[in-house]
Write a protein that binds this DNA or RNA. Structure first.
Lengths: 128, 128
DNA sequence: TGACAATATTACCATTCAATCATACAGTCA
DNA sequence: TGACTGTATGATTGAATGGTAATATTGTCA
């Protein structure tokens, strides 16, 4: 099974992605599909932080932060390190930020097209 | 509000992304967080298809395909075009595929690291 | 040791949502 | 017109999960 999953990366043809691989990809997207988790990721971009600092930075409750950090860590997006009473989290997979930028760009293009419609200069008719 | 969202793309500093922008980004990820929808996207990579063809290509039920196509279209990822009885869908935002490749690469690196642990040649200790 | 601080976990509720069935709608052709 | 095909849409159900409050756990210090 591990091998089957590893094959995924070497797969030239996305059409041959198996159900398991698709589920893994979908799962990764799902981890990023919650604003609270994105908040945590972004707060960690400027440097590693312990839980208390993340609570302060995001305005989320301690229990919630702890929970979402677990999700992000299990997904391999964050790493944790203990330092006395503190647990310090940091970004383990910086490619996350490229993904966010990708989405931002995509959303921006979309919004600009929509704005264009209202301005009467539609370039990309939305086949309604 | 539109302007606030448009600002998103010009934002140099992700830390300043507002709550609305974060919700939009999370929403985009959420659309991609279901294997059935990824299946449809991948099926459309080789070219536009009508609903029946997508049902055949994915093995999903017609009602389900129709539902997910609606979600994808509303998200701006697909476009629709009517041709007689048929409704033909095609990719509207090809950057989706780069995102999938990104995730694939990220997952692959992660799996290889994990495999390395089992092989006794761990390069990236997982701070457990 | 006891008191305290930082983090994690448990139990729970409320919400979201994918999937399905049945049915409605739209377009074609006889 | 009616029969048929392709697609969309309620209505419903079950499962997953985010948020929270309370509590447990872990480590520090006096």
């Amino acid at each position: 099974m591990i091998q089957k999953l590893l094959d995924m990366g070497h797969q030239k043809d996305r059409a041959k992605l198996g159900g398991q691989a698709l589920e893994m990809i979908a799962g990764r997207f799902r981890v990023l599909s919650e604003a609270s988790r994105l908040k945590l990721i972004i707060a960690l971009e400027e440097g590693e932080k312990n839980v208390s600092a993340l609570v302060a930075a995001t305005g989320l409750t301690q229990a919630n932060v702890s929970r979402q950090l677990q999700t992000l860590t299990e997904a391999g997006i964050l790493n944790r390190r203990k330092d006395g009473l503190n647990v310090i989290y940091h970004i383990a997979d910086a490619s996350i930020f490229e993904m966010c930028d990708h989405v931002c760009g995509s959303l921006q293009r979309r919004l600009e097209d929509q704005a264009g419609v209202f301005a009467g200069r539609s370039k990309t008719p939305s086949g309604k």
